[in-house]
């Protein structure tokens, strides 16, 4: 418990947050990595997942590969990328995208598939084009599951971003590993607590968004 008190003291002290290596900058880096990785992976995965869900084409492959991707060890991907492209942000970013894409694809196609086929059929029969069916029916009605996929990906990236420091990038992993190496328990524990707080706060935002969506009728 003394470790915990020391860690909290470290987290709450002003100098831990100040400066270029302080918690403030590290937290910002952490969130920046997460946002960048999510934008990149969503740009790749969302269209792919929506097309798979809309057309049903490539579904078997998608199920298989998103399932297999769950087995990929994050540390392995990030160290492999680190050796391949060198130290910096590029390596972890590749790893984040590799890990985030399957969750987003899976969320997107299952969201579209969960939409009542009869509603989609009726929409087509009224004369909505395939694109209009996707945008005005399938995406809004499948939004909760689609967003659920993005939520999972976000959690995964926030967790993996902690490991980015292991291959030389910034983020909240920096103080964590520094503390680990120097046997500075207060720093190591304190940084861990901040990561946990960030992760839970971000997840709470997603939960709130999903809860708002649930109020709209018919949305899955």
């Amino acid at each position: 418990m003394t470790h915990l008190m020391e860690a909290l003291q470290w987290v709450l002290s002003a100098e831990s947050w100040a400066g270029p290596g302080g918690l403030g900058v590290r937290t910002a880096e952490h969130l920046w990595y997460t946002l960048l990785a999510l934008v990149l992976s969503t740009a790749i995965a969302l269209p792919a997942g929506l097309v798979i869900g809309h057309t049903g084409r490539g579904r078997a492959l998608a199920v298989l590969s998103t399932g297999a991707a769950r087995a990929l060890p994050t540390l392995g991907i990030i160290t492999l990328a680190g050796l391949a492209v060198g130290i910096g942000l590029k390596a972890p970013m590749i790893a984040f995208v590799v890990l985030a894409v399957p969750s987003i694809i899976a969320g997107a196609y299952s969201g579209v598939e969960a939409v009542d086929r009869r509603v989609v059929d009726a929409a087509r029969a009224q004369g909505l084009s395939p694109w209009q069916v996707l945008v005005t029916v399938e995406v809004p009605l499948g939004l909760r599951l689609i967003l659920g996929g993005v939520r999972l990906a976000t959690l995964q990236v926030i967790a993996t971003a902690t490991l980015a420091a292991y291959v030389g990038a910034g983020g909240l992993g920096r103080p964590l590993f520094l503390g680990l190496r120097n046997h500075d328990y207060a720093m190591m524990l304190g940084a861990s607590l901040v990561v946990i707080a960030v992760a839970i706060l971000v997840d709470a935002l997603f939960i709130a968004a999903l809860r708002i969506l649930r109020r709209i009728p018919g949305i899955h």
């Binding site: 418990m1 470790h3 915990l4 959690l155 926030i158 967790a159 993996t160 902690t162 490991l163 992993g173 964590l176 680990l180 190591m188 524990l189 940084a191 861990s192 607590l193 990561v195 946990i196 992760a199 839970i200 971000v202 997840d203 939960i207």
Partner: peptide, 21 residues
Amino acid sequence: LGSAGLLYAIPSLPLFIVLPI
């Protein structure tokens, strides 16, 4: 069930470090 799910939001490495306390 929601709070059980929130547990999943905790990144693994920090949990490995905090849990011993």
